[in-house]
Design a protein around this nucleic acid. Structure first.
Lengths: 221, 221
DNA sequence: ACAGTATTCCATGGATTCATGGAGGAGGAG
DNA sequence: CTCCTCCTCCATGAATCCATGGAATACTGT
């Protein structure tokens, strides 16, 4: 890399890349793609120490990928914009398509390919027909920060104990955070094991939002 | 970042980010976005030692962003696909929009904002009207690997000595690699200094190709 | 087989990144 | 003012990354 103005420009661009070059930061970015969260919440959700989470969040902020807002004593981090969400989505897409080990790791993490998936348009069609109910299995705060209009929220942790809340005469379309999120896979398996007809959305809420579909409940206090 | 399957998946995804986290690699990626090149060519174009260039190219390959093909004794590196070009474009877009220092470094590198720019559609319109001639000021090999149909190739280094090759009765639309490439800025300034009416394409060939416009001369032997 | 060219491999020292625990600072409630 | 909560800053040692020059490898042409 040359010194001088060009080198300086490239070095600045590389800051964005560096921010994406750490699994912990990617996990935080993935959480933030679902909605704004405080440092403590993010640390808990990602099973990180507070210092560690804070440091990584500041690295993301320094790279311009997230912004902060102070509410009293808590600091809320949020994605800097939908272009950042699109960047994160593109990274996953390229990695999935181009790195064989990513496909392997994804299969290990998501489990066997035994669940049926449908696209966003097919979901809309089935809901319009009254054939399907949409089930959001993400943790409660993420549902609250925004979800597919009409979806029912039952976090995956509580699903086993709340099966009777789901109307028995319709099929279920479960979704979660995005293409590499395990919750919807687990939900479909759990529902199928209880004799319910269930499929999952191919990707998740991030892709739904990026595709420009309407979002419910995204108000900020 | 948790251990286990999820941590493994995130670590794999981070490999793509790490590959983007170094200015030298970004420069190589930017060159490869213009077309396939050998190691020696890339090293020369980026002013790198051969060992250094080779090591970085292998890092990009390990992250799945580029592929290699052997032709006799030379190894040709190429972008793994247009999804990688789109990723690189998105990184620049986010960095430009979100990191103040990038905007500053870009202005320093590209020079004062004294050149008129037009979009791709406007370029097509002016060419269709016979009002404008399109000038490709990238180095010869990049023009050969693909260019805007009908464009004339005069590398920026040779432009000062080849001004008479450009028809005097039309205005010039100069373009180069992409949004952060300095050649077209320099070309417009040079032409204007010689009394020619010249504007530049807002971005460059990378964006032209990604937008799905036709490309000439991209044949591979 | 031999010489020549293009590329990769390897060893090295210096710089950067990382996780972590404890101190420090900012704001709110009493 | 004082405690309390939430978060940031700081120091540290281990791990990783980086540029570089010289040796080793792969292939071509003779």
């Amino acid at each position: 890399m040359p010194d001088g103005a060009k080198g300086e420009l490239l070095a600045q661009l590389a800051r964005v890349g560096k921010a994406l070059g750490n699994g912990t930061r990617l996990e935080l970015l993935d959480l933030l793609a679902q909605g704004p969260r405080s440092v403590a919440e993010l640390a808990a959700a990602a099973h990180l120490g507070l210092s560690t989470a804070s440091a990584h969040l500041q690295a993301l902020k320094h790279a311009g990928l997230v912004t902060t807002t102070r509410y009293g004593t808590t600091v809320e981090y949020a994605l800097a914009g939908d272009d950042v969400a699109a960047l994160w989505h593109r990274v996953r897409e390229v990695a999935t398509a181009r790195v064989a080990d990513v496909g392997r790791a994804a299969r290990t993490y998501l489990g066997p390919d035994d669940t049926e998936e449908i696209g966003r348009e097919e979901l809309l069609r089935r809901v319009a027909d009254g054939r399907a109910v949409v089930l959001d299995v993400r943790p409660g705060p993420e549902f609250a920060a925004g979800h597919i209009p009409g979806a029912v929220s039952i976090p995956i942790d509580e699903l086993a104990g709340r099966l009777e809340e789901i109307p028995a005469d319709q099929e279920v379309v479960a979704y979660c955070r995005g293409a590499l999120c395990v919750f919807s896979h687990d939900a479909v398996r759990l529902l199928a094991a209880h004799g319910r007809r269930a499929v999952r959305l191919t990707d998740g809420f991030l892709e739904w939002r990026l595709a420009g579909h309407p979002v419910a409940g995204a108000a900020r206090p």
